[in-house]
Design a protein around this nucleic acid. Structure first.
Lengths: 339, 339
DNA sequence: TTTGCATGCGCAAACGCTTGCACAAGTTTA
DNA sequence: TAAACTTGTGCAAGCGTTTGCGCATGCAAA
């Protein structure tokens, strides 16, 4: 169906190799033939077949993106599109396209990663995950295939990764509450499967400690980023008869639910309970009250992830690198004492 | 480097074709050899090379997604990730992966679409665009390559598309305002390059007309989905000395800016000016006041887009189809008269 | 005039897989 | 018992490129 390099060769009365070399801008081709071939290519509306080229060159200019859970679920959270934005912005500049896959279970994720790696279709992989024990990570490590993971892995030996300074930014946020005199600060949504939430929890603990406040496990509620609702998490506290004076949610979307629960109980934000989140959801600033949050610069994380991946793909001598993108505390009314 | 089908063949002392047939589950292979080969494949950690397979089979199981503007910009708006979610949810079930590309200009977009189509790497394309004159659309039409566009094209001859019932849902929304007695209803953010905004404008006009209100061009402000800010658009009205009693924004994100402008002028929403948007941004319901909007079901749009594409790819006898996903009017406080 | 090198191009193998055809051996049918 | 199928496998061409090597030709240096 399509016109191939051979068709052009015949039409130009040269060999296919010459055509190939014209395409590759090989200097050993005379200007005359080059012009002639290019003209014929245009006339015959020729376009190289990337599959065939990839097979011959063993290079596809495609990177794989494996998203945790289903694309269906993950992209519900603005964080992932933002990462994708970042990756895309620099990938295209470097001539790479992005192949997305997703997996519902950790096993599927590992399988996809493996297929991407070993199937010859991608040159590198970005894992949008940061689970403590990630089968996909160990698999890729074993295969010695270039990859980068978004989120610090528990064991970061021989892996490239990007992340925020979750510990210190959480420390800052907690300090911000303490400085205003809040003493009973809840922490909602920690999940012990993900380093990101653990790092944030640790930052919170350390800030309490450094300021003479005891860590109270009862003020910590476990939960999941996307699946759980802040509304439920907050109510778990209430049901235990605990009423904190401040609440840090692991994510803004969780925070919105937290606020709803607080209001349903007839309490006010921030007057009765101050609230803050993480990840600075696009509309957090428009809320009433505007939500204090942490801008994690997911866009930048995406950029860095790609850059690290590219370096890995192109490097002769392997090394493993990381990039830490600082988060920024964004203080808004939801966490500011009004009295 | 990788172990190939030939390596397995040698190890199993059969021909490569036999291996290939085992992989393809060809019934002409005896159970005995099948088992033996499978065992060896596992032992030697064999994985088929998708590039080679694609070249031989002329089928890649990859669809292309070309997003307008840069991924960088588009994914800023929640609409696109939602579409992607939808596409992904059904693509993976059908064994397809998604290759994303993006383009800053219409020309680049056409180029990318062409490369995807003719480069043999994708089997079909989804265009996330709905420009009036879309070079990518005409190109793909010319190439007779399977594709679906999200958003009704101006000339929908020989193209598959999915869209909302923008005209009637906008009609409904406008009627909702009129029914409450609003008379001076502004329409912000129409862009004459995109059918979606034009359809919505037309629905608005028709609703005015059907209810004895004259269409006033001064109440319409041009603008762009993503690039323009609602704040600026609303102020354009104010600067002309026009104070409407209601405002329909082409998008919720625009509506947020509109509300900001209204408040800055010392007016109240909805008491002084009622406001509504489109596309039901994730957090519109959390705003104060909660924002009236139209749920466009982008997720479903994505699903339908893929289904149409798949049908096109697999069909022997070409036909061109469309799917119209109804939007739902979601009335919240921002558009309800309180007095 | 010989040697040597640069230039311009073609040959053919390779990339890893699929598949139409052929063929031998075994099994059924007439 | 011959003919006709069925079953299981191999052969080899093909998918559209790339690329190492080789071979003319022409020109400059010795």
């Amino acid at each position: 169906m399509g016109v191939t390099i051979n068709d052009i060769a015949k039409a130009a009365k040269v060999s296919p190799s010459t055509i190939s070399r014209v395409i590759a801008n090989n200097p050993r081709i005379s200007a005359a033939t080059r012009e002639r071939v290019l003209k014929i290519m245009k006339e015959m509306n020729y376009h190289p077949n990337y599959i065939a080229r990839s097979l011959a060159k063993k290079s596809t200019k495609i990177i794989g993106l494996v998203v945790p859970g289903s694309t269906e679920n993950s992209f519900r959270h603005p964080f992932f599109p933002e990462i994708l934005r970042g990756i895309g912005s620099v990938a295209y500049k470097n001539g790479y396209n992005i192949l997305i896959s997703s997996a519902n279970t950790a096993a599927e994720e590992k399988q996809m990663a493996k297929e991407f790696a070993v199937g010859g279709i991608t040159e590198g992989i970005i894992l949008m995950t940061s689970m403590i024990k990630d089968p996909a990570v160990s698999e890729l490590k074993k295969l010695k295939f270039p990859f980068v993971v978004v989120g610090r892995p528990q064991d970061d030996n021989e892996v490239n990764w990007v992340d925020n300074n979750n510990f210190s930014i959480s420390y800052e946020l907690t300090k911000h509450f303490i400085a205003q005199g809040y003493k009973k600060i809840a922490f909602l949504g920690v999940s012990y499967e993900y380093t990101v939430t653990i790092d944030r929890l640790e930052g919170y603990k350390k800030a309490l400690e450094d300021n003479g406040l005891a860590f109270d496990a009862d003020l910590t509620v476990e939960g999941k980023f996307i699946d759980d609702k802040g509304y439920d998490l907050m109510n778990k506290l209430f049901e235990k008869g605990i009423i904190p004076d401040a609440a840090i949610a692991i994510d803004d979307l969780i925070a919105f639910g937290v606020i709803a629960a607080i209001r349903e109980k007839g309490l006010r934000v921030p007057d009765d309970i101050a609230v803050a989140g993480f990840n600075n959801a696009p509309l957090s600033e428009y809320m009433t009250p505007a939500l204090t949050s942490v801008e994690v610069n997911a866009f930048t994380l995406g950029i860095k992830a790609f850059e690290l991946l590219l370096a890995d793909i192109e490097s002769e001598h392997k090394s493993f690198n990381r990039a830490i993108v600082p988060g920024e505390l964004i203080i808004r009314k939801s966490s500011i004492k009004t009295f």
